[in-house]
């Protein structure tokens, strides 16, 4: 309504608030991030390449990205089941479990880290029975995976939930009246409508797990090349004052994170342009 081209804006305060926003954004977010990239330019391409492809770095990146991908996949499947149960069925404790989904968001990561470790340690409530089966979770890559699943739970559920709630019941009834079995209706009508939200949730869970630090390091064991995640390697390099190494790893992770945001935006746009076609 308020015109872009008019000589004046109707509501006051645009200059002030926009100025404050841009200044603050630049100082707190953009300048520090720019500093990171500036620091990488101090490295030659060969140096950068050498750091990033060194065995320990490569392994750390593999562990972070690989396990994050697996954890996000599990979250995709389990998140779909959880969201389906929460939205479509009525059962005792439903509202409580709905609230519980947000705990991984709200619980400080260090708390989650020590709690998961205590739970899955060899004498822990879950660690002990698992150890009897010969499965060691704490201080192994499986531990990292568990922590990443924990941290990613809310993403799929919370991105898919509103879409599933808003899904027009008539499309299911239409499918049923056209003779589709329930299985066909779910797989051919409902799931395709949820795909953009599922992809977004998956990407968000993946991005979060890749960068996760607090909830992972306690349970990880942190053995170089085996259970050492990339964020931890950054911290280690910093404590050794090898800033260049830390920066190079950070840039790789940041670029991937930006790629993910870009992909999510594309998925959202695709979803928006696709929806009216239904």
């Amino acid at each position: 309504m308020s015109g872009v081209t008019g000589r004046r804006r109707t509501l006051p305060g645009f200059g002030l608030t926009m100025g404050l926003t841009l200044t603050w954004l630049s100082l707190i977010v953009l300048l520090p991030l720019a500093g990171l990239f500036l620091k990488t330019f101090e490295l030659s391409l060969a140096q950068f390449f050498e750091i990033v492809t060194s065995r320990r770095t490569l392994n750390a990146l593999k562990i972070s990205f690989g396990l994050a991908f697996l954890a996000a996949l599990v979250n995709l499947v389990m998140g779909t089941i959880v969201v389906w149960a929460l939205v479509r069925y009525r059962f005792p404790g439903r509202r409580l479990f709905d609230a519980v989904v947000d705990i991984p968001f709200a619980l400080p990561t260090a708390v989650a880290g020590v709690a998961l470790t205590a739970l899955f340690a060899q004498k822990g409530w879950l660690g002990a029975p698992l150890a009897e089966l010969g499965i060691k979770v704490a201080f192994t890559p499986i531990g990292i995976f568990i922590a990443m699943v924990f941290i990613g739970i809310p993403f799929v559920v919370r991105t898919v939930q509103p879409v599933l709630i808003d899904l027009d019941p008539e499309i299911e009834e239409a499918a049923a009246s056209l003779g589709a079995s329930r299985w066909n209706t779910v797989t051919r009508v409902i799931l395709p409508s949820l795909t953009p939200a599922l992809l977004t949730g998956f990407a968000l869970a993946f991005a979060r797990a890749v960068g996760e630090y607090g909830s992972v390091i306690f349970i990880a064991g942190n053995l170089p090349n085996v259970s050492e995640i990339a964020p931890l390697l950054i911290v280690i390099r910093l404590s050794e004052f090898r800033y260049a190494d830390a920066t190079a790893i950070a840039v790789v992770m940041l670029v991937v994170a930006f790629l993910i945001i870009f992909l999510i935006n594309r998925v959202q746009r695709w979803a928006q342009t696709r929806v009216p076609a239904f």
Partner: peptide
């Protein structure tokens, strides 16, 4: 809005690292 959201997608460790570099 994307820029405002940026810190959400940066690993916490990197969020600290940028200030160490400054």
């Amino acid at each position: 809005i994307t820029l405002i959201d940026l810190p959400f997608s940066v690993s916490p460790v990197i969020s600290g690292l940028v200030f160490v570099l400054l």
